[in-house]
Design a protein around this nucleic acid. Structure first.
Lengths: 105, 105
DNA sequence: CCTCTATTTCCATCATACCGGAAGGATAGA
DNA sequence: TCTATCCTTCCGGTATGATGGAAATAGAGG
């Protein structure tokens, strides 16, 4: 994980629609959700949704698996782990950060 | 911490220059750095730097303290804690996330 | 008041993001 | 093959972001 990759992932999550999208996928759990299901829940145009999803997939935060004509989307936890780890490292380099202190306890 | 605030902070960090800025401030530790010191290290125009800093301050990720004519900037750890906490909650709502498992151990 | 330094705001330019309608694949089933 | 569904890509408009030079502001000190 380097600064460029981290910033790309952060930017991907730094849009309310995409963050909501990611959140929805997390709440959907390991089963994931098809693109159409996401569209129902979020309520945006299919093309807009596809753009956002593409961004999340490109940055590795979401994976997609084809099942016949439907595309199942899932939150890709390892990517979020790595991102949080990077932020925590940056944040807590001087051990002044509560998050790592809590994790260490 | 709600979705809008989280996405604004994520967007603020989702720019390579701003993430580098934040990282520099974290590495500077509690003493912080003046704006001019940041400019030396990052090497961008003062106006550009000021724009980026404004964004980081507005989102609460960085604080500023005036000392005579110089402005000392510091990473504001509680904000990062809250953001990481939000991401971890979203990510690990179904306990499928390694980060929280590690924190819990 | 004048000046010097530090920083911000103003302003303009260029690039990129966001949005969604319309058209174009991809896949399954009749 | 024909059709229907699901999703993506193409395209256009509008908005927002990034960048930095120039001018303005803030504070310290003569």
């Amino acid at each position: 994980m380097n600064l460029e990759q981290a910033s790309r992932q952060l930017e991907a999550l730094g849009n309310p629609t995409r963050l909501q999208l990611y959140r929805t996928l997390v709440r959907a759990g390991p089963a994931g959700l098809p693109v159409g299901g996401l569209q129902e829940r979020i309520g945006i145009a299919a093309s807009t949704l596809s753009h956002h999803l593409k961004r999340l997939v490109e940055t590795g935060l979401v994976t997609q698996e084809r099942q016949a004509t439907t595309l199942i989307c899932r939150a890709h936890y390892p990517a979020m782990d790595a991102l949080i780890g990077y932020l925590a490292d940056e944040c807590c380099a001087d051990a002044g950060c509560v998050a790592v202190a809590a994790a260490a306890s």
